[in-house]
Structure formats: structure tokens, C-alpha cells
Design a protein around this nucleic acid. Sequence first.
DNA 1: GCGGCGCTTATACC
DNA 2: ACCGGTATAAGCGCCGC
Length: 796
Amino acid sequence: MKFEFVPVDYDYFDFEGRNYVKLVGRNEKGKKVCVVDSYEPNFYVILKKGAKPDKVVKKIEGIEVSKASRTSKVLKTEVVDKKFLGKDVKAIRVFVTNHKDLHDVASEIGDMKEIEVRREYDLQIISKYIKENGVDPLMWHSVEGDILGVDDFGGIADAFDVDICVGAKKIMKLKEEKEFKPKILAYDIETDDVELGKGEILMVSLYGEGIKKVLTWKKCDKVQDYVECFKDEGEMIEKFVEYVNEYDPDILTGYFSDGFDLPYLKAASQKNKVKLALGVDGKGPTFTRGRIPSGKINGIVHVDLFRFVDAVFSQYLQSETLSLNEVAGELVGESKEDFDFNKLPHMTDKDWYSFFSYNLQDAVVTFKLAEKLWPDMLEFSKIVKEPLFEVTRDRMSSHVENYLLHNLDRFDEISEKRPGHDEIGRRRAMGKYEGAFVFEPSPGLYDNLVMFDFTSMYASVIVSYNLSKATFDGKDFEKEPGFFPIMLGEIIEKRKTHKKEFAKNPSGMLRARSNAYKLLANAAYGYQGFFGARYYCREAAAATAKFAKDNILKAIDTIEKKGYKIIYGDTDSIAFLQGDKSKKDVLKFLKEINADLPGIMELDLEDFYGRGLFVSKRGNAGGAKKKYALVDSKGKIKIRGFETVRRDWCKLTRHLQSEVLSKILKDGNEKKALELLKKILEDLKRRKINLDDLMMRTQLRRPLNEYLAEGPHVVAARKMEAEGIPVSPGMVIEYFIGEGTGKRVGDRVYLPEEKAKYDMDYYLNNQILPAVENIFDVFDVSVKEIAEGEKQEKLF
DNA sequence: GCGGCGCTTATACC
DNA sequence: ACCGGTATAAGCGCCGC
């Protein structure tokens, strides 16, 4: 039979000692299809320059490796002309019966004087399959094959709960790009104890197209039509499984579900002795080990949206935490409902109804977030050619590496290996190299600023100067363009093209595509300096930073020589005074600068700004770097580095400072800002400030026992633990400073629920004054004196 | 008991 | 451990007096 097919989930299995890849996806009719394809595991033995392959081939062909469960042997060899790190090499491609034994066979070959290195025995089988067979994730293919019968592959067709199971004869990518819309199902659980296995699952919500349910066993009124009630936890879980199977999703998604919902469900199903048969194989989820366990379900892609957001988007989001509420609020404009978990021990009927509603809303929000992020997941998957499961969990370094890996064949390149433990140790011990240039500004309020910035500076430096592992000869970087800079150049080019297309014809797909290329370009520099990278090259990373620095310094010099006054600059941006020049003059000058820039490097106009404020460092006379505020021609204010944008300062401070900056930038003087400050000082002293505005929020970044210094947030976290609230790394700890006698700030730490008077002096001297002091200093206004004055007035 | 200072820690910028 | 270096600043904790 022949049909169209889009692979969504990739897996492999062994049959009679050989590897087969199992693809699960949809056909053109929307049916769930499993396609079994054969795969020939192989790796390369790269020969030394001038070495003859014959002797090596002979040794290799006789190799057999016996393990407890199977014997793996070399099936065939091919002598091939390839490239390795840009150099022509002769290599022997070694085909082995089982992928899992590649490493052992490679070791068995051992060191022969003819052999330079062995490579590609350390790649994932699925990655190699995609790379060699070209069956790319989420792309439409035409498949020719036979429906599998009960006798094929030990009867796997029967074991899989899919519409059709086919043994592939031929799989070809379709020429035209066709849309694929996955069936997404979102879920969320609520428990009475957040610690895994300790509590019970009170309810499970499901939300997708045509499904909207809360399953529970706690409260059986038929008040909300979407609530279904069951006899116990086990029965509820069984029904959850049934609904998932019935809905037959491509994607089952949760938020933090790798770390919470799915493992909790698994533990609860074991406790209740019910099957969590979510997979098409009728089996429960498995958890791959790693820093964070990943929950895998056979034939369905389990997507933990938190992982994807955390790994790929977090640095570009405004959200101060990656909670579902904040992230969904920012990305889909929808937020969660409120529920007070303190009510749990004594729930009224009404409390239960609002709890159900809350639980449902979480699944709804998760579903909407999944729909919103779908174009991004899809594009990342298509671009780096890795399955959805991996793509939604990989960090940017892996994305860069996968992009390289899946494009190596165009360059005839054999893949470099992953660094081993010792190599990683050596790389990490190397220490830092010199990085970016930051211009020290003179504190002051400036009118009419121009900001230039280099587009994708580090990436364009890598391309323009050909900086990479394969183009480094130990001393200099070669002229002949290497595959890394070439690919990066393509990435930058594609980003440009898709950005333009998007501007002309906006769509979620184009936005996501353009964005994915942008993120890849931005991560390429860090990748070469990352100790875990296959194509790690410290010299390339250091040279990138150095050439970037040379270029910004040269541009600054050019701009200065033209008669402009430089105000600020950081890494790839330069701010200077427009002076008496017209915007047209500035743009003409920009063109002149661009004409002299090397390679693909490009200086761009970032914007014109009406005013800009720069302050001094605390205690020191020098100008503070990475701290400034600008206002553009539309009156939009851009604040960088100030306490306003730091989540570890209380709201009162942040709001006040933001208002102060805004007034100063808009009015051009400090008068109104000063009035505002006085009002807040007054409110603070009259104890009129809301406690919520005084809450401090600091992230716990390691387990409590690993702290050498006990900062206020660590004290707060210990208090929480003492009260039975579990704390863990990553949590944002909330507390306020109240009155007390202790010497340390930490001695006066109170949790939000604790009853205490706020420490007026602390909030005055450690929050408000420090945040506005340097700003008013620019106008020679001493806020210390003003605060003192207020005190005097009050006394009299 | 207190001020100074180095160190630890969190968070931001690009 | 899961992309890099540069920078600000608070608060702890130890030292010397």
C-alpha cells in the first residue's frame, strides 16, 4: 500500500538481534499509523593520512562481540572518501548488527597504527536514522509498504493500539510543504501533598478539542457538568487512561509534568495497582534518566511545556518566574484561577467547586499555551531535525549541535565525538577568556541620543572571520570557509529572509521559523565555548569575543572622529549624542561605517531616543555600566539594569523607581519625581504601605545545606521547611523584613503569613533610598537630606 | 562591640 | 553540567582593633 505520512514519535526495537525504527504518526486521513523501518547501524573508522585500509578492513570484518543477551558482529565494511573537521580523509564505514554494540565493536578494533580515530558510535540511533534515511520529524512523506501481520516482528502490529501498522519498503519526503495539525490534549493533577507519592491525587483535569473534564473521587455532587466522580483514586486514574486512549492525541501535554504530574500518576497507579496504560503499546510511561527525568509515553509525545519554555524561551520572556500563571499570562494573555491551598484540610462544598474549576482552568491554560507554542515546537523540530520529544526538552547547545549534525552530510563530514569525562574536566579547568567591551558612561541626563547596534554580532563575527574548530590550525583561522561558519551564515541568511516574509505576511509559522533561526544564531557563539560541545573550540570563542571587541572599539572611534559624543556602549551597541546633526545625516554616516565593515558584519540603527539617564555606581564616583533608562520618540521607556527590573527588590521600591525614572525622562527634570518620593516616604513612615508591596522575592538556587552564607532568603526557606512546606532549588522564596533585634537582616525575616510590623528603617535605608539616591544625585539632590528633613518635620 | 573587607549570592545585560 | 563573559550590589561572616 502507499499513503502519505507524518512521523511524530520515534522509537526503536530489536528483533532477532537487529534494530528497527518504529515511527508513529498520522496519515493523510488523520488515522494514527505506525511505520516500521529497518536501519543499518554503522560507524566510521578514520584512517591516518596515507594509511592503507586493507589490513584494517580485514581485522574489522572478523569482529564479533558477545554480550549476555546477544552477539553482535560486523556485517560489512565500505571504504569511503569523507571529510573530518574539514580535511579529506579515507575512512572505513563499519556496519554492525546492533546499534547498542557500536561502542563495543569500536573498542574491539582497538588502536592500530593505521587508525586515526573512530567516530559516530556515540550518536543516538534515532538521530542517525533520521540523518541517514532522511525521514524528518513532522514532515510529510509518502510511504510504500505492507500492512504488518501477526507473524511480523513477533506480532508487534497487534501489540500497538494504532489504526494501521505498516512495514516500510520505501519512504520519500513529499516535495511540497503541507500543514500538520496535531491532536493536543492537556492535563493537570491536583494533590494534597506536593511531595511525590506522599499524598493522593484528588483530581485530574483534561482539556482538548471536544473534551473538557475534571475527574475526581473526592466530591460527588453533580453541580459542575464537567466533573465526573469515581469511587476511589485508582478508578479515577483508570478513567483518565481511558479518556486519553479514546481521544488518541499526538501530544499529551502538561506544565511541569515531567517533574510532577506524570511521575505522581505513575506512583499513584502503582499504589492503587491499576495500569497507567497511556502508550499505544499498552504500557505506562517510562522515565529517562538525566538531570531532570523525562516522561516518555510510547506512540504519544508527552510534552512538558515548562521544559520547552525554560530551555528555549525563558531568557526572552518578561516573566519573572516560569510559573504557568506568569508564562501563560505573558504568552496567551490568560491566567490561572486562584485557589487557596490552605483550605485543603477543611474544605466546604463551595471550596470543592472552586477547586474543580481551578483544576480545569489549569488544563485549559496549558492547552492554550501548547497551541501558542506549537508553531515554535514544530519549526524547531523541522529545523534541527530531531523528534518533538527531544526538541521540547533539549537546551540551546543541543539544538545547535543537532542542526550541525543533521547538515554534515552536505559537507561529507563525519561527526566529531562528544567529549568524555576527562576532556570535559580539562575544558572546564581552562578558566575564562576575555569577553565583551562595556563603555563606562558619565552619569547624567542626556537629550537626543542615537543607538547603533551590530546585527547578530557574535554570529556575524564567526562567519566573517571563519572561526571554528575545523578552521583552526592550532595558531590561526584558515581562509577556506569551514562548515560551521558556512552553516551559521545560512542560519543568519534564513533568519533575514523569514523575518522579511513575516513582515509582509505575518503568520505564527513564519514568526516561529524566523525566531528559531534567530535563537540558533544567538546560541552558536556560546556553543563553541561550551565544555560539553562536540565542536568545542575555546580559541574560536575567545577570538569571536576579541574580534567583536575590536569592531565595536573601531566603530566607537569612527563615530567619535565624526564629532559625536559617545555616551554608552555594551558588547554590540553604541549610544551617542545626535548633537546638531539631522537624522538623515546620522543614517548617511551609518552607511559609510557599514561600507568598511568586514565580511557580513552589519551596523544597524537601533533607535533614536529623546532622553537618556545614566547614573553612578553605589558608593563610587564612576558611572554604572548596564544600568540606564531611555525614552523613545513615542514616549516609551526602556529601563535596563535598574532595581525596577530586578525581581529581588520589593514592589514598593520597583514601582517608585520606575515612576521616578519615567517622570524624569518625560519632564526633563526631577521636580515631580521628588514630590512622589516625598509622598512615599510619608506613607512608609505612617505605616500606610501594603505588606504585599514590601515582599522580597529571591530564588533558591541550590539545596539548603549547600549554602555557605545564610542570606535572608535562605533563612526564610528554612522557616518554610520548619513549617512543613517543602522547599527545593528553583523556588522563589517570599519574605519581608520586620521589626526585631537581630544584627543580621536575616534575623528579621518573616514569611508572608507571619504577623509582624514591617521594619521601617530597613525599607527606608536598604530599599527606597538606595534605589533613588543615584538617580537624584544626577540633579545634585540629596535624598538622604530629604529623608532626614521628613524626620525632622515629623518630630516637630 | 564595631567597622572594614573579602566572599557569597542573586540577578541583570548583551 | 547541559551556550559565553561582564557587571552591580546586598548581606554574611570573619578579622582586627
